[in-house]
Design a protein around this nucleic acid. Sequence first.
DNA 1: CTGTTAGCGCCTTCAT
DNA 2: ATGAAGGCGCTAACAG
Lengths: 350, 350
Amino acid sequence: MVTLKDVAQASGVGVATASLILNTPTKASRFREETVQRVNSAARRLNYTPNYRARIFRGGATRAIGIALESFQSHDLFSQPYWGQLISGLHYVLQAHDNQLVLISPTHETSAMHIGLRYMGERRIDALILTEVPRPEDAALLRAPSGPFVMLGRGEQIGMPHIYTDDMRGVELALDHFAEQGHQDVLWLGPQEWYDQSAERRASAFAMACMDRGLQGSMCRFHFQRPAKGVEPLMFQARQALLDYCETHPRPTAVLCYNGDCAVGVYRALNTLRCRIPDDCSVISFDTHLQGYLEPALTTINLRENEMGELGARRLLEHLAEKPGEPMGNAFSEVLEPELVVAESVARIS
Amino acid sequence: MVTLKDVAQASGVGVATASLILNTPTKASRFREETVQRVNSAARRLNYTPNYRARIFRGGATRAIGIALESFQSHDLFSQPYWGQLISGLHYVLQAHDNQLVLISPTHETSAMHIGLRYMGERRIDALILTEVPRPEDAALLRAPSGPFVMLGRGEQIGMPHIYTDDMRGVELALDHFAEQGHQDVLWLGPQEWYDQSAERRASAFAMACMDRGLQGSMCRFHFQRPAKGVEPLMFQARQALLDYCETHPRPTAVLCYNGDCAVGVYRALNTLRCRIPDDCSVISFDTHLQGYLEPALTTINLRENEMGELGARRLLEHLAEKPGEPMGNAFSEVLEPELVVAESVARIS
DNA sequence: CTGTTAGCGCCTTCAT
DNA sequence: ATGAAGGCGCTAACAG
């Protein structure tokens, strides 16, 4: 492997000279033109490549940022649109700034956050992105983190730096849209005991927003069963929940769904009930990814995962440029507005 | 930051002693029990953490593997199931062996492969995974790569190490299944001028397999238009293609689709034609990810991206353990068998 | 202008 | 059983 020393020797200068010449951005060289030529050509001739490991060892930063993904099913985690989009956004910005993203999954014994904090201590990453509210036993570790971290996505916990899209606001957008179209009887459909608090949060936002708007809101919440052999996927659970609900309740004219899978379940249930979308019943859902595959195309609430990733990466890099190693202030907070993407699944009620 | 020297000083031993004690797997220590205790407790007291940057600088490897993703739309690349699953598989194995995956996207000027090779030269990654056949201008670079690389996924190019799932075999599996169910008139539906050669390859496999089986095969291939403003997504293009086809040809009893998006298009077209699946027409498709969302559930060919990723990571790690830095032999080749996942979209013909 | 030198933190070899 | 020394490749500080 060709080192700086080799280049220096070959061109008859010292290593420092060679280093300066090869790394100074061309202009403003304080060296004789002839020397510069000699060094440059030697480097090219020998096919010199700077050693990245040596560089980051010497320099202050690893130029890597970790993301702790507390996935229950790491097997196809990255193909889940939410995470996929988040990661895409992060990677896009990071690569543009010559940093890299380090994916961290939990092991059987250890949470991803735990591993991430260790990585920071080892100077293996410069900063850590959290994607879930820390478990109680882990929360204490964040009091004295070995570096900057930020929560990406909504956590109930306050008192830690975070960036998220306001999904409760998303519920309001959806209900406003329903109301504008003349709907009075709206139904929330979503799971209980979901992995994080998002299902509870959106459900309660739904209840409050209905009151504020004087809408006749109802709830259809089903006990979510974790994926396992013999357990039907979320989509079927949602479908069955709505069918059961309609046996004992009047049919709503509008349904707001927790996520895309639930929306597909609702489409199927309504189809079974011979109820046409959007004429007989309107539907809105969180998650944009299945939007185009459904017929009629689903009106959705965009949580802008991609932008969240990009913004998170930018903020983190800015912070690292200023105060490398130091945690971000607890007051750091940035909230994105969700966006209602209108498609064909909502109709004006007559 | 606490270094080994600090620990050594605090416990009154030399750095070498401290290093040996802290890194030797507990047992088989050649040091006095008392010394071991002293060093260990000092390390814990000072909260010593080995510096990862220093370790990889000294050691032979970066413990990182790059993957060159030649994505046209890097924006939500990782949410596309194919890449998401591949990456999940890679990451799963790599993290278990304390290695990390470095994602590499192309820039405006430079292909991801090009960047990846530079990274290898810089010792920023130990090996490179290719996901696409190199462009002609890039191919030459692989003659003298700065380290091991492997192609993951099917490339037409031979003469480079590769791992892939045999999609042509997948076509055969599908046709066997159709034939078993008594189908004679089978249709291929897929794009032309797709990003890679996969659409051509599968189409020609279809033609050959039909001949071998004495089936009455037909082709419905449409000119694929790249996603852009005002251009409809692949799904709609496929839908329209089938509708157009059925205007001038007798309707097939079985359709094999290039991918999941095409399958959704076919479902919609058949629906428009009042043709029921599977009673009036059977459908099989590549790509498993939309399987459960469709009604009736789609019978698919699983290309096992996840396992491909896992296998690729394993092989690469094995190679790195044996001959770090050296390219893999051109003869290296591993082929996975695709799997037919039977669902509800194929019926016996009467 | 250019060369020499001193680390960065770790691990391994070689003396003691 | 333990300590001292050297070097990985690079860059910054200091001499000449």
